[in-house]
Design a protein around this nucleic acid. Sequence first.
DNA 1: TTTGCTGCAAAGGCTTTGCACGGAT
DNA 2: ATCCGTGCAAAGCCTTTGCAGCAAA
Lengths: 146, 146
Amino acid sequence: MSRSQKSDALIIDTLRKNGYKATTQRIAICRFALHSRDHPTAQRIYNEVRKMHPTVSLATVYKTLQILTEHGLVQELDLPQSQARFDSYVGLHINLVCMQCGNIQDFDDKTAQEMVESVTAKAQFTRTGQRLDIYGMCKTCQDRTK
Amino acid sequence: MSRSQKSDALIIDTLRKNGYKATTQRIAICRFALHSRDHPTAQRIYNEVRKMHPTVSLATVYKTLQILTEHGLVQELDLPQSQARFDSYVGLHINLVCMQCGNIQDFDDKTAQEMVESVTAKAQFTRTGQRLDIYGMCKTCQDRTK
DNA sequence: TTTGCTGCAAAGGCTTTGCACGGAT
DNA sequence: ATCCGTGCAAAGCCTTTGCAGCAAA
């Protein structure tokens, strides 16, 4: 599955197909979480969604994110000393995590895909997912530091 | 740096070189954390260390693990819905995380090393570390499930 | 109408912090 | 003798849960 803009109709459909009611709160949260490319925290999703739906609660955000995670529509990234961040790109890719600015850049790489498949086979492992992070400093921060 | 058994003498030396006092608690915690291969949680390290030093506190375990993490002697692995786990193998390797039994198996792979270096170069990233996880079910659990 | 969802507040779990005593240098 | 580290308890922070009212099907 590659990056794709999910329309509200598709979101509603997906929710209903999985036995969830398509409430306005859920739709708003899904819309933001599934379209964002900058790995937001639950708190930031809450802040953003509240701009349109001022009564939404953080609990609902967490509950909805849990649904999305369980159904493989977003991936939860836990990093030390920071809140969980959610990645709407669930395909096999690399996260370039900048320890300076906190930015996370997605990076596609064919070798990475082959490597994961080969390792899985070699270890006789049944793979359901993966997470490939590289930590360091992004180009922008390197330039700024100079 | 590959897997290596650190002697107490080396642990004491390393602590002092970095400006830390070599207390008996720290030595015990370091000994266990650096020698363990099964990615223990802070709580488990605490339980184990308490067998020898019944008065040690969880706070001290956390503080010592923080020192080890900051100096790159262990790596902290955060997974959703679970306590942080600590990996004494800080070299570039793959974590095969079994979602069934919770076991984490380290796996060395040359292709992975090359891939990380190549991606880092391509993205003009300055790398300080990485984390490569594959999630799924280990051989043992597959066999047991059958 | 029925069922499940929301929002609130409170609880929970892991981790960190403040402080006075005690041990390492 | 000095200073850092320890242990305890309390606080902190993110996340989850319980529940009564409310909205979706």
